[in-house]
Design a protein around this nucleic acid. Structure first.
Length: 204
DNA sequence: CACCAGGCAAGTA
DNA sequence: TACTTGCATGGT
């Protein structure tokens, strides 16, 4: 079945997901880093701690010492690495883009992706989440759910390809549309969470 | 008790 | 290029 048709079925089944669940771009970026291989529920606790300490903005993240930051995000796991990553990004923004996301986001999509990937702790999925959900670029996000989704719908071979090729499987068949890519990824995650609770059920 | 969750980097072959 | 390992909490 075509991937556009599968999208329509998911949308009909689950409805719009309203991603990314964040009030600001800084919160979105922090969430993207904190959710690496981590249950979203634990990310929410870390986000709440940051918010309570007034640290849910990039200026504060730039100034705060790593050990203190690490304690606040402890519930999200890998807290030392993630604290370093948050600070790496905040430092890059402060030192090269006057601390303003508007300035960083003036870059073209390819260059912006390269800049994000150069930050230690930001890999392809995290970079693409930021590109799609904060910078509003038409980039398709690939995660573990995306591969399971492909494998469950007749794209067994494609599901095992390298990251960029998996993304290409989608972008080659879909119109280049930010809102479509936004909703599709969110729906795939919704699909994945549903099926991880009902492990014996079939694809659909 | 084991296993997983909206990964990444560094090392090895 | 293709594995393997360390990183860490909280839920089931």
């Amino acid at each position: 079945m075509k991937l556009l048709r599968l999208y329509e079925k998911l949308l009909n089944e689950y409805g719009t997901q309203n991603w990314w669940p964040a009030r600001t771009r800084a919160e979105m970026i922090a969430g993207a880093i904190l959710t690496q291989n981590t249950a979203w529920k634990n990310v929410e606790r870390a986000i709440t701690n940051l918010h309570r300490n007034g640290a849910l903005n990039l200026g504060t993240l730039y100034k705060i010492p790593v050990p203190e930051l690490a304690e606040w995000i402890r519930p999200a796991g890998y807290f030392n690495q993630k604290a370093g990553c948050l600070k790496n990004f905040a430092s890059l923004l402060h030192e090269n883009y006057t601390g303003k996301l508007d300035r960083l986001f003036k870059l073209g999509t390819d260059e912006l992706r390269a800049v994000l990937l150069a930050v230690k702790g930001i890999g392809k999925e995290t970079a693409d989440c930021i590109l799609l959900y904060a910078a509003k670029r038409p980039v398709f996000v690939v995660d573990a759910y995306t591969r399971r989704f492909l494998a469950a719908h007749g794209f067994e071979a494609e599901s095992k390809l390298p990251y960029d090729a998996v993304a290409g499987t989608f972008t080659a068949q879909l119109p280049e549309d930010v809102q479509l890519f936004n909703e599709y990824h969110a729906l795939i995650v919704r699909w994945g969470k549903f099926h991880s609770n009902h492990k014996d059920s079939q694809s659909c």
